[in-house]
C-alpha cells in the first residue's frame, strides 16, 4: 500500500481549466489526429480556431471520453456517437429545466 500523507489540491476540469490539444489527447490516451477529426466533424470546438496550439474548454474532456466510450462499447460510428452525445446533453439540460419549472407550477 502506497500512502501519500500530503494533501493534494484538485481543480474542477469543467470550470476554468483549459487544455491544449496535446493535453486533451493525452488525458484521453488518443492521438492528436483523432481530436482534430472531432473538430473537423464539428463535435469539439477549440476556444480560438485560429490559435496555435489549439486550446479547449475543460468540458471537452468529458465529451471526448463519452464519444470514445460509445464508439468502443456500442460500436457506433463517429456520426452516431456525436448524435448520441448531443441528445444526452439535451436530456441533461431539459432535466434541469423540468426541476426549475416544477417549482413555478402551483400545486403540482
Amino acid at each position: 500500500m502506497i500512502v501519500n500523507q500530503n494533501i493534494i489540491d484538485a481543480v474542477i476540469v469543467e470550470e476554468g481549466v483549459e487544455l491544449t490539444l496535446d493535453e486533451l489527447s493525452r488525458a484521453c490516451a488518443v492521438n492528436a489526429e483523432w481530436i482534430v477529426t472531432l473538430v473537423d466533424e464539428g463535435i469539439l470546438e477549440p476556444l480560438d480556431i485560429a490559435a496555435n496550439p489549439w486550446r479547449f474548454n475543460g468540458i471537452c474532456l468529458r465529451r471526448v471520453r463519452i464519444i470514445q466510450h460509445l464508439q468502443q462499447d456500442l460500436e457506433v460510428n463517429l456520426a452516431g456517437a456525436a448524435l448520441a452525445l448531443q441528445l444526452l446533453e439535451e436530456i441533461d439540460s431539459l432535466q434541469l429545466r423540468i426541476t426549475a419549472l416544477e417549482a413555478h407550477v402551483k400545486g403540482s
Binding site: M1, I2, Q5, I7, I8, A10, I12, E14, E15, G58
Partner: peptide
C-alpha cells in the same frame, strides 16, 4: 494507494477533477 484530496468546493455530479 491512498491519497488525501482536497475536494474543490462546488464540484457537482459527473464533473471531472
Amino acid at each position: 494507494r491512498k491519497l488525501n484530496v482536497r475536494i474543490p468546493k462546488g464540484v457537482h455530479q459527473g464533473q471531472l477533477i
